[in-house]
Design a protein around this nucleic acid. Structure first.
Length: 302
DNA sequence: CGCGCTCCCTGGCCGC
DNA sequence: TGCGGCCAGGGAGCGC
């Protein structure tokens, strides 16, 4: 489920319970995630202070005072839930429920942390495509997980010149190119579909065939859809929840994703418009590209 | 090298 | 209500 906006939403909700705090206990309840836990995983976390909680693409990174970084990926269905010990309480900008009986004991609760807030943090992942591992902080960039990863879409480095070069000459559909984490890291199926709609570009267009004057609108569409989704707490289709347990709200603002056969919304508001008309009588279509659904409006996207 | 297909795993939903 | 089939936000691996 989680693309960049969902992971960022989780990071924001996790930070008050983790950043600047000590992990007083770490417990593996169930292994069998995408990769095995590293040796002595719990011991290497216990007693460690989390100095910073950051995000790289769809990964959460908790830098520890030991010089290691706890790397977390939520896969398709991962959740990080924060519970306050004792009673419901507010930390930073978030309100956390009191840990109910059995919080952390569920069938798909893989890892449970306690921190000195005190708070309990539960990593739950029923599809088990997620992972948790430890990597030396000063070698993070060279790690297998990150060494081929492209730039952050919300960074200043992701600009029109970069995007033009990244797409230029590519014979793959622009939809597939934007999903390639080596070009730009953090976009997934939902936000690529939504960004292409906002920019008025068909997912079938070959990346290298985009006109010069389509690059800037596409860039703007990608950045705006990600920012809007973060502000809305991400998109909850089924599994995504914020660290507080609340669902995200951006799914109510999808213009094409999951809307096959429904009327095209045209451009619902000027803030979402990056260059096409508001009125449209066509319906949203779904095609499969590289094994994944693409939703688009044939009239609005060329 | 670069592409797309398949698979990993579980569960929700749809249609019969 | 029960059950089989299909589908899902990610990503690695493999074959062409």
């Amino acid at each position: 489920m989680p693309e960049l906006p969902e992971v960022e939403t989780v990071r924001l909700g996790l930070a008050p319970a983790l950043e600047g705090h000590v992990i007083t206990q770490a417990r593996i309840r169930r292994g069998n995630l995408r990769i095995p836990f590293p040796p002595r995983f719990a011991e290497r976390l216990t007693g460690r202070k989390v100095e910073r909680l950051t995000r790289r693409a769809k990964y959460l990174l908790a830098a520890l005072d030991s010089g290691e970084t706890l790397v977390i990926h939520l896969g398709m269905s991962g959740r990080m839930s924060v519970y306050a010990e004792g009673h419901r309480q507010k930390l930073g900008n978030y309100v956390y429920d009191k840990a109910p009986d059995g919080a952390g004991d569920g069938k798909h609760d893989h890892v449970v942390f306690e921190t000195d807030v005190p708070a309990r943090i539960v990593f739950n992942d029923h599809r088990r495509f997620g992972l948790m591992t430890l990597v030396a902080t000063d070698a993070l960039d060279q790690d297998k997980l990150f060494k081929d990863m492209g730039i952050e879409p919300l960074s200043d480095k992701f600009n029109a010149a970069y995007l033009a070069k990244a797409l230029g000459g590519k014979k793959t559909p622009v939809k597939s190119a934007l999903l390639d984490q080596r070009l730009v890291a953090g976009l997934g199926n939902i936000y690529v579909c939504e960004a292409l709609f906002r920019a008025g570009i068909s997912p079938k267009r070959l990346a290298g065939s985009l006109k010069k004057d389509q690059i800037a609108p596409l860039l703007k569409a990608i950045k705006s859809v990600l920012k809007d989704a973060i502000a809305a707490g991400g998109s909850t289709l089924r599994d995504h929840a914020q660290a507080t347990g609340d669902p995200g709200n951006f799914q109510h603002r999808f213009l094409v994703y999951g809307r096959e056969g429904k009327p095209c919304k045209g451009l619902a508001s000027s803030s979402e418009a990056v260059g096409h008309k508001k009125r449209c009588k066509d319906t949203v279509k779904r095609i499969v590209q590289a094994g994944r659904s693409s939703f688009y409006c044939p009239a609005c996207q060329k």
